[in-house]
Design a protein around this nucleic acid. Structure first.
Lengths: 240, 240
DNA sequence: CTCCAACAGGATGTGCACATTTCTTGACGT
DNA sequence: ACGTCAAGAAATGTGCACATCCTGTTGGAG
């Protein structure tokens, strides 16, 4: 047998972290909800310290907001914050597509084409869940193709915040991006070496997303914690 | 009176965090050094849990590297990592100066001029310490003038990582930037509305920094913890 | 009837002690 | 003499219990 999962396992931390993140992703937790540690520990079936650790991590990553001696809360997102995040993404991603347009390896071109093809396939199958994942990974992929791990990490964090806005504001709407249509055009411009066009398309793409989100008013349906985490519990870590 | 600082105070956490950060900033901690919790707790005069919390935060922010069941270590920085960080900075800061060149408020212009003047004054006084601070703040100031808090926070983190390279590789060399000369030229281009020139100057400025750092080989003088934290202890928080 | 203050209940924060893992030192066998 | 293994020690990770703080409530005074 591999190991005794009896006591402390590093996977347990990830499980709690992932459970909370998944609940937010599903829109179960509305902004302003207080995540009290004892209740979460009971619901998830783990010790309070483990919940505390996960909560601290989530606070540090910007998913939650902590007030000293008060507790941790699901943040109330303003349209201003969303605009700022997309503004930074515009700066970075415009530079990224410019750089890729000006030069990239054949392996990079191959990966890019493969990704666009997969997005189109998911669209044809009408696989909303898979398309949601792929849409987000497209932007991370572009960062990866630059060969800069720091850039990839940074953009991944920004994308996480972006999807948080989607999750909290419009969880039903499972669309991470306006659609694979834009992505295909951007990829085409990159492969064709048209830097200005690629940058322009990316800026328009991001602008379209921000307007799409700004139009949706957040829904307020406060529910209790046990109901929010129904069926989620602690599964496998599941990468970001 | 404000409050009883008798027991647990939020300032204590910041003090420990700042003490370790200051030790790294002074070059007291060489790459590869293991920061063991009991020793740090003894030296700083705080409980082990407080050291643990600060260490976890520093690890999460990228200052330290943690290995499960092994401890936390001062990372060995490669020139590749440094190149990546400056690459991301180039993308962001070029976009920043472009935006500022295309439009900024009179208040922004005033702050920018004041900062450049202060840098020149510090140079005249040959105040290396103050110039070191100002040089770093110049780049943060540009982000602030864009009116985007997310951007400011991100760039501040990037700058922190940049100075970490300086601190670990060449702590003696108290120069955060090539000099106020470049900053003055960049500010002039921004105020004059010359976006292309400002971006070009900024890229050249950052390129100059990366070559300056790459030329310095890291020095290896492993010293023990009590000696490294001599005279540092726990002072006031002191903002980043 | 309204407002203020003291009190009880509960949640967060922290120090402490123990379990587990890893590194070191020493001895044994080849 | 060198490599291997085992036992002790130290450091890390974790659960537990208590101290502190906040919040909602109740009682009384104006």
């Amino acid at each position: 047998m591999p190991r005794k999962p009896r006591k402390g396992d590093v996977a347990a931390d990830e499980a709690v972290y992932g459970a909370i993140r998944r609940a937010m992703h599903m829109g179960r937790l509305t902004p302003g909800t207080k995540l009290q540690e004892p209740a979460l520990a009971r619901v998830l079936g783990v010790s309070r310290e483990r919940v505390r650790k996960a909560l601290h991590r989530l606070v540090h990553e910007g998913w939650l907001t902590a007030i000293p001696n008060r507790g941790t809360f699901v943040p109330s997102l303003t349209v201003e914050e969303m605009r700022e995040i997309y503004d930074v993404r515009s700066m970075l991603e415009a530079a990224i597509v410019r750089r890729l347009s000006e030069g990239h390896t054949t392996a990079a071109a191959k990966r890019l084409k493969a990704h666009v093809a997969e997005e189109k396939a998911a669209t044809r199958r009408d696989d909303r869940g898979r398309l949601f994942e792929l849409s987000g990974e497209f932007h991370v992929l572009l960062a990866e193709l630059c060969g800069n791990e720091e850039l990839t990490r940074l953009l991944r964090g920004l994308l996480t915040r972006s999807t948080m806005h989607f999750s909290l504001a419009a969880p039903r709407q499972l669309t991470n991006c306006a659609g694979p249509h834009d992505h295909g055009d951007i990829a085409e411009a990159i492969l064709g070496g048209r830097a200005d066009r690629a940058a322009k398309l990316m800026l328009g793409h991001l602008a379209g997303l921000v307007t799409m989100q700004a139009a949706r008013p957040p829904q307020h349906e406060p529910i209790d914690l046990p109901q929010a985490f129904r069926g989620i519990k602690a599964r496998r870590p599941e990468r970001d």
